[in-house]
Amino acid sequence: MVRDLCMFAGFNEDSQIVWFKITYSKEPGSLSVITDLLEKENAFIKFGHIDNITQTTGEYSIFTELKKDADMANLAQKIGELEVVSAVEFGISEFGMIYSVDFPLNVIGVRGVMARALTIVDIIKTLNQNVPHAEGLLTLSGLRGGSHAAKYFKSIMPINNNNFESMLAELYRAVGWGILEIECNPETYEGRIIVKDSFIADVYGASDQPVCAFMSGYFAGYLTEYFGKNISVREVSCKATGKEVCEHVISLAPSRENQEYQLRGDTR
């Protein structure tokens, strides 16, 4: 996920923002050993997160604020010499603005990029205004993305009827797409998804028609991959049309229709 991405405001000329990516053994108290050393070295931790690499090892990515004259290489060496640490990487965010521990960014298993919501919405608007069947094309594009996400989740962790909804909701929040409320019956394949603060609807502006076809497709792709059945998702209410939230209805696609056809939706 993009949880190693952060922004620091209020640049201090007397300090520097330094990131460390530390691979450590997940023994009891191992993180405390690392944080204790950083505290002794006057490294103020501003932001950090932990990724589980394997059952025995983890990756601790942190941004620290240190004095301008601090010896980064020496501190990294001290961290690397800890018994619980197997590898250390570090770097400096020169202007303390936006930085990532990793380049390229990795988002659910593949390269990711940062983009303004307006940039993506401009692409959607251009398609809607100039391309026949734009809504269907956007739905199909989302379908592929949602399917890839579900495949990745299944490859790295157990996914079941107890967590498939929360995984999707956490993904949307993490990448800034929106806040989800999901109700989906895994026996009937029916339900609905409420999207609060949809980045598409919020930025798109007023519209006579729902504008989140890409999200409908993403939901359909994710659920289709998880359930192993063709799932149809359509947006029935959109914030861009003046509604309070966006609402997408989930249902099992008619068996006589192939997935590509049933996802195309109405044309504009």
Rank of each mutant, 00 (worst) to 15 (best):
Y60E: 12
T35P: 00
T57P: 04
G91Q: 09
N42V: 01
Q55V: 13
L38P: 04
G96K: 13
E83L: 11
N42R: 15
G96F: 08
G48F: 01
E65H: 15
N52D: 06
K46N: 14
G80A: 04
I92R: 15
D51Y: 07
Q55C: 02
K68C: 00
E83R: 13
V84Y: 04
A76C: 14
L38Q: 05
D71Y: 01
M72R: 11
F90I: 02
K68R: 15
G96R: 14
Y60F: 15
G58W: 00
V85K: 10
S93E: 14
M97I: 13
F63Q: 00
F90L: 07
N52Y: 13
I53F: 08
I62L: 13
E39L: 02
F90W: 03
D102Y: 14
T54C: 10
F103M: 00
L82M: 07
I50D: 12
H49D: 10
S86D: 01
I62R: 01
L66M: 15
K68V: 12
S61G: 11
M72S: 10
F103K: 03
N52M: 12
I79E: 01
K68P: 10
S100K: 09
F44S: 11
E59Q: 10
G58R: 03
S61P: 05
L38S: 07
Q77L: 11
Q55G: 02
L82N: 02
E41H: 08
A43V: 02
K78V: 03
T54A: 03
V85P: 02
A87W: 00
T35I: 12
A73R: 00
E94M: 08
A70N: 12
S93G: 15
K78I: 00
D51T: 08
I92N: 09
E89H: 08
D36V: 06
A43I: 05
S61F: 06
E83K: 15
G48D: 07
E81T: 08
I79P: 03
S86C: 06
I62V: 10
D36M: 11
K46W: 12
K67N: 12
D71N: 09
G48W: 01
